[in-house]
Amino acid sequence: MAEQPESEDYYVGAYWGPRKEAPEDCARRTAELLTLLASCDPLLAHWYKPARTREEARKHPLMPPDLATLTESFRRGVNREKGGPAIEQLGFTFWFGNGGARGEDVDLRITCGDHGGATPNSCVMTLPKRGANADRLLTAPVLAGVVRSMALAWDADWCAVTSWDHRELLSEEGRAGTFAGWVTYLSRRRGEVPPLPAPMRISPVEDKGTLIILTPERFTVANPEHVALAQRGRELLARARLMQPVTP
């Protein structure tokens, strides 16, 4: 087995614009997401409610998804100023994990129902940093499945997989808006994805949008060719007017 490059920390993010949704809607979409994720990898088939300790969390599983439990969790996660009333237009936030050992686990943070337009709604998954879980998940086929799951469950506008190092590099260069990650999804609402040069590959996500994989290798900013490939991908997609911000 080929030796893997020095690990960067990776995440998957799905983002969509203002959308008014009730806690029940957020729960339904989350249940769909968890069901889809379970087929991507065994690590993604176990989720637990937040608790003070991992041992305590394991006493409160979220699988199989229970709509009443998820709905109540979103209700409790309504955005508000400390001690103040709920800020209805900011929607709801729910954070939870899969109860694994630190550095080998996965967390999900969901913000949905925000219709104020100041920030996008999002579903962000932090990925394992080390161990067998990281070796399995940090591959293009598995991450493509995760992105598909998020795109379908949340009817997202844009999804991306990348490393935090890559995100920081883009921020330093002032290009951290909508960008091309290792794996990228763009909703068909944005338009049609043009043909892209090898090694980039595109495939449809049902009738919803398009999945783009920059490289079959593990993307890393330590490889200048990968960074250049991401920049080239963004340029081509921007030329097709597909890289607009998620929120106006």
Rank of each mutant, 00 (worst) to 15 (best):
1 M>V: 13
2 A>C: 02
3 E>R: 01
5 P>C: 02
5 P>S: 03
6 E>I: 08
6 E>P: 10
8 E>L: 12
12 V>W: 07
15 Y>S: 02
16 W>P: 01
18 P>K: 13
19 R>I: 04
20 K>N: 05
21 E>A: 09
21 E>N: 06
21 E>F: 00
26 C>Y: 04
27 A>E: 07
29 R>Q: 14
30 T>H: 10
37 L>W: 02
40 C>I: 01
40 C>A: 14
42 P>S: 11
42 P>V: 09
42 P>K: 03
42 P>W: 03
43 L>D: 05
44 L>E: 04
49 K>M: 13
52 R>F: 06
52 R>H: 07
56 E>T: 08
56 E>L: 14
57 A>P: 09
58 R>Y: 07
59 K>M: 02
60 H>S: 14
61 P>V: 13
63 M>L: 13
63 M>K: 03
64 P>I: 09
65 P>S: 03
68 A>W: 01
69 T>Y: 06
70 L>N: 08
74 F>R: 01
76 R>N: 07
77 G>C: 00
77 G>Y: 02
78 V>Y: 04
78 V>C: 02
80 R>V: 00
81 E>Q: 04
85 P>L: 06
86 A>C: 03
86 A>S: 11
92 F>G: 00
93 T>G: 09
93 T>D: 08
93 T>N: 13
94 F>K: 05
97 G>N: 09
98 N>K: 05
102 R>P: 09
103 G>I: 08
104 E>P: 00
104 E>R: 10
107 D>C: 12
108 L>C: 05
108 L>T: 03
109 R>L: 11
113 G>M: 04
117 G>C: 03
119 T>I: 15
120 P>Q: 07
123 C>T: 11
124 V>M: 13
125 M>Q: 04
125 M>F: 15
127 L>I: 08
127 L>R: 03
127 L>F: 05
128 P>G: 07
128 P>N: 10
129 K>W: 14
133 N>Q: 15
133 N>W: 15
135 D>M: 15
135 D>G: 07
140 A>L: 14
144 A>I: 11
145 G>L: 01
147 V>N: 02
153 A>E: 08
153 A>F: 06
153 A>G: 05
158 W>T: 01
158 W>G: 00
160 A>R: 13
160 A>T: 11
161 V>Q: 12
162 T>D: 15
166 H>T: 09
167 R>Q: 15
168 E>N: 13
176 A>L: 11
176 A>R: 15
177 G>M: 10
177 G>A: 08
178 T>N: 14
180 A>V: 15
180 A>N: 04
184 T>C: 13
187 S>L: 13
189 R>A: 15
190 R>L: 12
190 R>Y: 09
191 G>K: 10
192 E>Q: 14
194 P>D: 01
196 L>Q: 01
196 L>Y: 05
199 P>E: 07
201 R>P: 00
205 V>E: 10
206 E>N: 11
207 D>E: 15
213 I>G: 08
216 P>L: 11
216 P>M: 10
218 R>D: 00
219 F>N: 02
221 V>D: 00
222 A>E: 10
223 N>D: 14
224 P>T: 04
226 H>D: 04
233 G>R: 01
236 L>K: 02
239 R>E: 12
241 R>T: 12
241 R>V: 11
242 L>I: 05
247 T>W: 03
247 T>I: 15
248 P>L: 10
